[in-house]
Design a protein around this nucleic acid. Structure first.
Lengths: 351, 351
DNA sequence: CCCAAGAATTAGAACGTTCAAAATGAACGA
DNA sequence: TCGTTCATTTTGAACGTTCTAATTCTTGGG
């Protein structure tokens, strides 16, 4: 394995100068066609590949996106991150960008990592996921001029701050649609199992239920519960709801974990047909045949990259500070209906 | 935001030469203590960070590991990859290594990506996951001198080839233990639901059942089924097994997806207490209270990095070609027992 | 007091690329 | 024929680091 060929080797083989080779790679249009072809041939004959680090050193851009892998949730919802990451890698590749991952314990540690990667010119821009109330990361990134985009709104902050680029999914609309669909199918007493307030995401989703369920305040109070995320918790809540004198005839949940628990509880309570809707459309939901609100992650990732890098290409836009163009995007999720003609917990179908 | 300080800036501030600053960073032991302290102070005062690309250009090492994100499985098992990735990022960070991810359609595409990242000096070494029979990747990597380690044995190939570094989990032993545990608890007719042969991983796991179940060949034939992975498939198989005249009194499955299906089928068939064991100990198994064989991913990752980089540090070892030291590691999984005093599908417990 | 040997530090070059500016070539109208 | 203009190509420098080799400083023995 001799050393890899360099631009100089290619230049010599093609009988042109270093810079012309570079131009063929970076601005092909300014090179005469015959020359370009000759250089291209030399490139492929020698198997030349530009040395990424040399290029980065010179251009001062790393063409790399950094993203933190969340601490593992023991729930099921981690699958969303997984899908997100996959899409991100896919679409980044299409723009000739690389994706670097890292882990961190808490927001402070995450910022330390970000600083290290950014100052070392390892990473041009960051993708934040899972914004929460009182998130310290965004302000820090803005203050330090580190380009970023977040998947998740700045809860409790200024939604319109142009310096904070964000993409999010309109959970409120998603839940509203799900509730409306249930009502159209005849359900009248639709319950809600969600997360304790304040939770940006959770509160929005609950608001969707509240808007669409068509129940008076007292009934709503009786038919909604809040709990930490998890299958057990979901089961416990559903059991409680179903044991009330005025039981619900459908349940909408803030997550698939809760919904799976609810589904199990409903089955155990002898009501396997009870309509239940989850959120995130995780693999588990598909596996057990649970309806779920699906986040359009493809679009989320596309929008995130567009906000960071523009329509196409891999040049990171500087942190915006004016209102010239919108710096955020709210996407609409879609309900995936299952469970009517599908495998259910109550009655297995199959060969 | 002025430009970042460089070694020269630090050198000037500390009244030493460029190279001394470099030495403080890379070989502190050869610098006199008083000098070292002076330089350190200058470094932290200026907030200096080495420029990663410049260093990589000069040293010709990227200190970066590449890993492909598998195409999304619609099953539940993807969670293992997720955990693996997380551990990898964590332990790589401890060695000052970075992790770069990419996606690919098929083995050829993966190799194209690997070539690009390797030739461009973006990545020093690769981690392969999910080796299969007739995998073309390993030979290619060996032939092209690209350092790598695989999580998964070279099925159908030479297990002892020192040029192929691999780490794997002894699924056979894991299943054997699970079966023995079930027998110790009184089960006598333990069934197996696995994957169609040939499947390196699947065949090994099945062998573990075969060795330990203590049944004659005819009974084994009646009590074992093979199917593609998935919850539905698992449910279908379990239903079939349970409807036989001589039904099993326990079921061991090759994956948590299959086991979840089996659990649902058993519940539906009125046998919610039937012992069922899955594989991978995914979050779902924990959520529904399913026993499962847990892969020691921490150790897997540690072993993988050790094979690639040695006991410590981030200098990739060249591809080995002699038998000087072992270049593979087989780890033993551990059964996680659940379901006795825990949430079950049959009877919900909770507030 | 001097010299040798080792410790500590420094100077120049190199890694492979792209930028900025200069040089060359081609085409055209006067 | 000769400028003039535009297209194309080339040259020297720079990006920030570490390598190699050379230099200076210390120490200790004679």
């Amino acid at each position: 394995m001799g050393r890899m060929p360099t631009v100089d080797d290619v230049a010599q083989a093609a009988g042109v100068s270093r810079q012309t080779v570079s131009n063929v790679l970076n601005s092909p249009d300014i090179v005469r066609e015959t020359t370009r072809e000759r250089v291209q041939r030399a490139i492929s004959e020698l198997g030349y590949r530009p040395h990424a680090s040399a290029r980065r050193l010179r251009t001062r851009r790393s063409a790399t996106i950094g993203i933190r892998l969340d601490p593992l949730r023991d729930g099921i919802s981690g699958a969303v991150l997984d899908r997100f990451l996959h899409k991100l890698a896919e679409q980044a590749d299409a723009r000739d960008l690389r994706v670097m991952i890292f882990t961190a314990d808490g927001a402070d540690d995450e910022l330390a990592h970000i600083r290290r990667l950014h100052d070392g010119s390892d990473v041009d821009a960051f993708v934040l996921i899972g914004t929460v109330h009182g998130d310290i990361r965004q302000q820090w990134l803005i203050d330090n001029g580190v380009p970023f985009v977040s998947f998740g709104r700045p809860w409790g902050g200024d939604l319109d701050d142009p310096r904070h680029r964000w993409v999010d999914v309109d959970g409120r609309a998603g839940v509203r649609d799900a509730v409306n669909r249930l009502r159209a199918s005849g359900s009248e007493r639709i319950a809600w199992i969600g997360w304790p307030s304040p939770s940006g995401t959770g509160d929005e989703r609950r608001a969707g239920w509240e808007e669409a369920c068509g129940l008076d305040e007292a009934t709503r109070a009786a038919l909604s519960l809040a709990t930490e995320d998890g299958v057990d918790a979901g089961a416990a809540c559903a059991t409680q709801l179903l044991s009330q004198p005025t039981a619900p005839d459908a349940i909408v949940c803030a997550s698939d974990s809760l919904a799976l628990g609810a589904l199990m509880a409903a089955t155990a309570a002898g009501r396997p047909e009870l309509p239940i809707v989850g959120f995130d459309n995780t693999p588990v939901a598909g596996a057990v045949g649970l309806s779920s609100v699906d986040q359009p992650l493809d679009e989320v990732v596309a929008a995130a990259l567009e906000l960071l890098f523009g329509e196409s290409g891999g040049d990171v836009r500087p942190n915006p500070d004016s209102n010239e163009e919108p710096t955020h995007r709210l996407l609409v999720p879609r309900l995936v209906e299952r469970r009517s003609s599908h495998l259910t917990l109550g009655g297995i179908t199959g060969a």
